[in-house]
Simulated assay, not measured.
Amino acid sequence: MGLSEDPELQPVLFGLFLSMYLVTVFGNLLIILTVSSDSHLHSPMSFFLSTLSFVDICFVSTTVPKMLVNIQTHSRDISYRGCLTQMYFFIIFAGLDNLLLTMMAYDRFVAICHPLHYTVIMNPRLCVLLVLMSWFIIFWDALLHILLITRLIFSAGTEIPHFFCDLPEILKVARSDTILNNIFLYVTTGLLGVFPVIGILYSYSQIISSLMKMSSTESKCKAFSTCGSHLSVVSLFYGTVLGVYLSSSVTPSQRSSIASVMYTVVTPMLNPFIYTLRNKDVKGALERLLGRTVLDLLKIK
């Protein structure tokens, strides 16, 4: 059903979301290029950051391009298989975003609370293993959700009050019993949603405790600045997700779909800016990369 049925608003929505999509893709690609090209950023946190940027590009690409096509063609149809495919990849990349933010919180916990053992604990092998395990877990989680949905019955011309195929909304419009789907949804949300949040909160409680024990104010500021950008992204992501969850329980689905734009589109777009502006190492590396690019262009001319 999209975000609005007003025909005069469609060109505005198309231009707005196209701009946001291009900024998101360009910004996150720039982060990946910056991290990969600067040897000073070859660290566990930078590895997780570049992975998060890649996931954010994929995350926003699961919903926005289809919505842009729908607006441009004046058609809101999506095939059954297309809906399942969109839902599958949305679950994967939303789940990976969640787990990657948890890994980054653990990285900051080790760096600040156990600095002498940081290089031993957060070795490259562990970092790659954590990312691969996350892919494996989320892959099977998404696949099981889709397999459970294939057993449901839907009527022809079913209307989804959203701008993409969101799992909870799909379960609401099914014509058959969804109790098994809802049970599995609640269980996986608890395991893959609540536990990572608890891990992040525990990590930052230990970080704050360690900061309070530091006698030097300069050391406190330096230590907190290393996790400031991550804390901003965590607050933005979980704050918008919680806002959508609360709004969906008290407002119509159409309004909650507008609120969900915050974490599906706005958050991936803002992440590169947050890490660039708040992280001195990334900001410096980006300036060096852009400086080299400008020099190369001048040499070519």
Rank of each mutant, 00 (worst) to 15 (best):
V234M: 03
G228M: 04
K222D: 04
D107K: 00
A259F: 08
T178A: 02
S209E: 11
E5P: 00
V64A: 12
D107G: 02
V55D: 04
L100G: 06
P196N: 04
T267Q: 04
L180D: 08
L242S: 11
M87T: 12
Y186E: 06
M133Q: 02
S235P: 08
L211Y: 02
N70P: 01
Y80P: 02
L100A: 11
S79K: 02
G95I: 08
M269I: 05
S205R: 15
L99I: 15
F237N: 12
V266D: 01
M1D: 09
L167P: 01
F136Y: 01
Y88H: 13
Y263E: 05
V233N: 02
V282G: 05
D166S: 05
F195R: 02
E5A: 15
S225I: 08
Y202I: 07
L30D: 13
I91F: 09
K213H: 09
V131Y: 01
P124H: 14
L191W: 01
C165T: 08
K172E: 11
T276D: 06
L49A: 15
V69G: 05
V110W: 04
V234D: 01
P65M: 10
R81V: 14
V12F: 12
V187Q: 03
S235H: 08
D177N: 08
D6F: 08
F14A: 11
Q206Y: 01
I32H: 09
G243I: 05
I78A: 12
A105P: 07
T150F: 00
F273W: 13
L3H: 05
S39K: 15
S155C: 04
E287A: 14
Y263Q: 04
I91H: 05
T119N: 09
S39R: 15
L246F: 14
Q10R: 12
T102L: 15
S229Q: 13
S36N: 14
F154R: 01
I91E: 10
I170K: 03
L99Q: 12
V35Y: 12
P7M: 15
G2W: 09
P11A: 13
Y202F: 08
D107E: 08
V187S: 03
I153F: 03
M133D: 00
S210I: 05
V265N: 02
W140N: 01
T119Q: 10
L167G: 01
N123P: 04
T267N: 04
S155F: 06
C58Y: 06
H162E: 09
N70L: 06
F59Q: 12
I160N: 00
H114W: 07
L246A: 14
T264P: 00
R125N: 04
L277Q: 05
D107I: 00
L298M: 10
V261M: 08
L192V: 00
Y275K: 05
L96P: 00
Y245H: 02
R292C: 06
L18M: 12
E169F: 12
N70D: 11
L298T: 10
S248E: 14
R175L: 10
I200V: 07
D281L: 13
F237Y: 15
F184W: 02
V197Y: 00
L126P: 03
D141S: 00
L41Q: 07
V110S: 13
H42A: 15
G284Q: 14
L180C: 06
I198C: 11
T240H: 11
P272R: 07
L3P: 02
S205K: 12
L96S: 00
